[in-house]
């Protein structure tokens, strides 16, 4: 059963200290960026994590890929707890899990040719000779739709879409099993987004990859995800299949989020009832007690301020963290 799960997170928390300087030992405030997230990713599938800015989705991505250390909780990759791994074990673990970032320009070394950049993970892991590496890089470039002549070019000569292809090629260099993609298409134009999404899907079916896909664009997610988790203020509020989450959202926040997405169909748009949330997201330094969404929720009751709703199935067929789900 659990053999099927390639990546699991248990009660992950990441709190960033903020506020006054440490030198004076003033009581520091804490940003609860991720606060108790558990999830699991099945082999060969895509788990999408959606939410608005500041909900903690990018921090969660970093925790899952072990780019940052959790404050508490654990991440299990292929049966191995990587949250307590030593630096030597981490190096080995990096072969299994890789990250694709939003802005490939920011993470490709401008002084390295694309070919060099794609081969970097191989050089770090020291698993191949120079000629083997070159051969492998050509293979990877073909895989992501870059031609061999791109090998010696530099990042600034590439378009956004091509850079993202290079970013994906680099992530694939060590034949990882899991890819954490943090907003991989957000910086791209619409017509290019579709190219990259198709590439990611093709790679998944060809190489049997598992994806954690972070996005704020809900339409992108529906196309690529097998399971969607919606985050609000550091917590997952609803998780389920795209059909369930998009078709029959049960959490009031999910409902508002879904209704806010503009539909590119003028006839449907007019008929749709839009839920407009009032106010802003509260500060993650001092989140509301009980349910974190209660300050903006239309269904709020007394219990919401006292009791934090657990993320459990309440008869909707998928887990929802709300006392009064639809």
């Amino acid at each position: 059963m659990s053999d099927d799960l390639i990546l699991q997170a248990f009660d992950l928390k990441k709190h960033f200290p903020t506020g006054a300087s440490k030198l004076l030992q003033r009581p520091t405030q804490v940003v609860q960026a991720v606060d108790g997230v558990s999830l699991s990713l099945r082999r060969g599938t895509t788990l999408a994590i959606v939410g608005e800015s500041g909900c903690g989705k990018s921090t969660l991505a970093r925790l899952l890929a072990r780019l940052i250390e959790p404050t508490s909780g654990s991440v299990v990759l292929n049966g191995v707890n990587i949250s307590t791994a030593s630096s030597k074990e981490l190096l080995k673990m990096r072969r299994e899990i890789q990250v694709v970032f939003q802005d490939p320009y920011a993470c490709l070394n401008p002084r390295h040719s694309i070919g060099q950049s794609i081969g970097t993970p191989i050089r770090i892991q020291k698993t191949m000779s120079r000629s083997e590496e070159r051969h492998r890089v050509f293979e990877l470039m073909e895989l992501v739709g870059l031609s061999h002549e791109h090998y010696n070019r530099f990042p600034h000569e590439f378009s956004g879409g091509q850079r993202q292809r290079a970013g994906i090629a680099r992530a694939l260099a060590l034949q990882p099993k899991v890819i954490v993609a943090d907003e991989p298409v957000s910086a791209l134009d619409v017509s290019i987004q579709a190219q990259i999404l198709n590439l990611l899907e093709k790679l998944q079916s060809d190489l049997g990859l598992s994806y954690v896909f972070i996005a704020h664009d809900l339409s992108v997610v529906r196309h690529i995800a097998d399971e969607v988790a919606v985050m609000y203020l550091g917590k997952i509020v609803e998780i389920g299949s795209p059909d369930a989450v998009y078709g029959a959202p049960a959490h009031p926040y999910t409902k508002a989020l879904m209704s806010a997405v503009p539909v590119p169909n003028p006839q449907a748009g007019a008929k749709r009832k839009r839920i407009i949330l009032t106010g802003d997201v509260p500060s993650p330094v001092n989140p509301p007690s009980g349910c974190r969404f209660r300050t903006r929720c239309a269904k709020v009751q007394d219990i919401c301020a006292v009791d934090e709703p657990l993320l459990i199935d309440r008869g909707q067929g998928h887990p929802v963290a709300c006392h009064f789900p639809d």
């Binding site: 579709a194 999404l197 198709n198 339409s219 529906r222 995800a225 539909v263 590119p264």
Partner: peptide
């Protein structure tokens, strides 16, 4: 065609515009 609509099917293949 490139735009992924909320109403469209999951895993239906998107039709991007080729090239840049």
């Amino acid at each position: 065609n490139s735009v992924k609509s909320l109403d469209s099917d999951r895993h239906s293949r998107l039709e991007p515009i080729p090239g840049i």
